[in-house]
Design a protein around this nucleic acid. Structure first.
Lengths: 194, 194
DNA sequence: TTTTATTGATTGACGAGTCAATAAAGAACA
DNA sequence: TGTTCTTTATTGACTCGTCAATCAATAAAA
């Protein structure tokens, strides 16, 4: 019973199923069939709408990135002042939604894919540039020269902590990433060399 | 012409070939056959010596980690004083040998594997703990309380920068990671909050 | 009747792991 | 010394399974 206008619905379902499937597997060794089954359709339909496996992956990655970007935007919208905005950026990166196993899996595999896929790399660069420019925007008024370098350090620290937290198993391994990055921000702001 | 005592030679060749193959592919989608061919033997022999694919991977990861550990040890051995030792640790993480594409590929895929493989996770923890304790050892005498936290930040920063540098394509994207991390170290040492 | 939705069946390829067979090196032994 | 046995090295061939992608066919809407 072909209802028209199914395409966006099917695509969304496939994207969702892809993220879930990658999360369950931990890697990109997931079949189009398993994704399609999880999304409640045949694999032929998945191919019909996306063309191939890699395109399905990329759509899933774009979706993950978009959610993160929206979270950052929201947090920034509610923050008052440079300092609060910086904190908002940091906090947005470490919300519990970002530590869902499937989101972590998406990011890690995203990094792997970025080595060889031009599209994935471009997407990653987009994320990195956005983060960097967000940080610089509110660091510059506070510390002027060196804001660029400080932003680079903070961005790398966010990524580094995310990686560690994401791969931590038990509570003992885990630390309060937000607090640590904020402490670092504190140091960058107050403990300027010079 | 079965010369005896081939096992260690074959194993080493397979480990080397595995790293090369993963480097060439960028991911773990490499076949035992391709690895064996690169190492100059049949796939059956690879199975004979390692049992299965995952064990070959783990051996390759262990090898990569061992090389890194040796580099750190060497650098530490030549450094005089706490400050110099800290710098040595940082520098060791960013030597050009660590930025060979195949080494980067090994690390990224290692992270992916650490999500699901108990062995890989254990190995990763080993690396993280060693780095942390190395840092604390020389931070404590310099800054006392808070050395633990500072070490955690520096370790995360190293990982974060490595990730960024490893995934950078052109020189424009790349920055001097060593200098940045050392600048941060400087801030941690001199710009103590309290 | 043209467009959109949908799938079962098929194709063509590849891959992990097994196994039986071959061969050489050393050990035991007569 | 020559003979037989055991261990180690090595591979071609094979099994069994999987999977991406295609296609022809069905069906409902416009």
């Amino acid at each position: 019973m072909p209802k028209l206008g199914m395409e966006p619905i099917r695509r969304a379902a496939l994207v969702k199923a892809t993220i879930d499937e990658i999360g369950a597997a931990g890697n990109l060794d997931v079949t189009v069939s398993s994704i399609a089954k999880r999304a409640g359709m045949s694999s032929a339909l998945a191919h019909h709408y996306f063309g191939g496996k890699e395109q399905i992956f990329l759509a899933a990655m774009r979706h993950t990135l978009a959610i993160y970007a929206a979270e950052v935007r929201l947090a920034l919208g509610q923050a008052q002042g440079h300092r609060a905005r910086l904190e908002a950026i940091v906090r947005a990166g470490f919300t519990s939604s970002n530590f869902q196993p499937d989101v972590i899996a998406a990011w890690l595999n995203f990094y792997v894919l970025a080595q060889t896929s031009e599209d994935a790399h471009r997407l990653l660069q987009l994320y990195q540039r956005r983060l960097h420019s967000n940080l610089v925007h509110d660091l510059r008024p506070l510390i002027g020269t060196g804001a660029d370098q400080a932003a680079a350090r903070i961005a790398a620290l966010i990524d580094g902590y995310y990686l560690r937290q994401g791969l931590a198993r038990d509570a003992a391994e885990r630390s309060d990433a937000t607090r640590q990055v904020l402490a670092f921000l504190e140091i960058e702001l107050k403990g300027r060399v010079q």
